[in-house]
Amino acid sequence: MDDSGSHPLEDEERWKRLTDKQRACLDLLIEHKTSKEIARLLDISKHTVDQRLTTARDALGASDRNETAVTYRRLKQTYDRMTYDAVGIPPTPTLVRSEFPDGSPPNLMELQDSSELPGRLSSKRSPFGDLLRPDHNSAGRIGITLALIGVIVLISLGGLSIGQTLTELLTR
C-alpha cells in the first residue's frame, strides 16, 4: 500500500472508469470552479455538470465533492502524463572543436573572418556572380562563351570607333 491507502491497480481501474466528459468537469473542479461556472465554460447545463461529477465521485470512490477533487488530482498526476512529440524536442547540442589548441580565450587582434577559414566559402564574391561556377551544363557553357565573345567584339568595335573618332579630331 502507498501513502493514500489504495492499491495502484485499484487507482488505475478508477482512472479508466472516468469518461472524457467527466474528466473535463473534474479538470475545472480542481481549479475551484463552481458547477455553474463549469456549465458556462463547457456550454452544458448545471444539472449535467452535477450529474457528471456525481458519477465521477462514485467511480473514484469518494464521499464528497472535495474528496473527489483531491482523488482526481492525485490520479491525474500519475496517469495523465503528457507524452512529447519527438518533433517538438530540440536536438541535443553537440560540441564544436575549438580553433585554439590550448583552450585559452582568443586574442581579438588575431581573429579573422570565419568565412575565410579553410573548407568554407569565402565571403568575397566574384563580380561575375555565379557565371564562373564550374558546374554549368553544356548548354550553359556554350551560352556563356558566346555571350563573352559578343561582349569582347562590342568592346573592340567600340574601341575602334573611339580610336577613329580621336584620329579624326586630331587631324583636323
Rank of each mutant, 00 (worst) to 15 (best):
I155P: 05
A39G: 05
R73L: 11
I44P: 08
R141E: 10
I144Q: 09
N66I: 01
R81D: 12
G140P: 02
A59M: 08
E10Q: 01
V96I: 05
L131N: 02
G150D: 09
Q112S: 15
E99C: 04
T94C: 11
E67N: 14
M82L: 06
R52K: 14
V153A: 05
E10S: 02
R125H: 11
P93F: 00
M82Y: 09
S4Q: 02
T71L: 09
L41W: 01
D43K: 15
T94Y: 13
L42V: 07
L75N: 14
M1T: 12
T94E: 13
K21E: 06
M1C: 06
G88C: 08
K76D: 00
L157K: 15
M109G: 07
Q51D: 06
D135Q: 05
R57K: 05
I30V: 11
S98H: 04
Y72E: 01
D27Y: 00
R74M: 04
V49Y: 04
K46V: 13
D11S: 14
Q164G: 15
P90V: 10
T48D: 00
G158C: 12
W15K: 12
P8E: 09
K21P: 00
S115F: 12
D20I: 12
E116W: 10
V96F: 06
N66S: 06
D80R: 15
T55I: 09
S114K: 00
L166H: 12
P118N: 05
G159H: 15
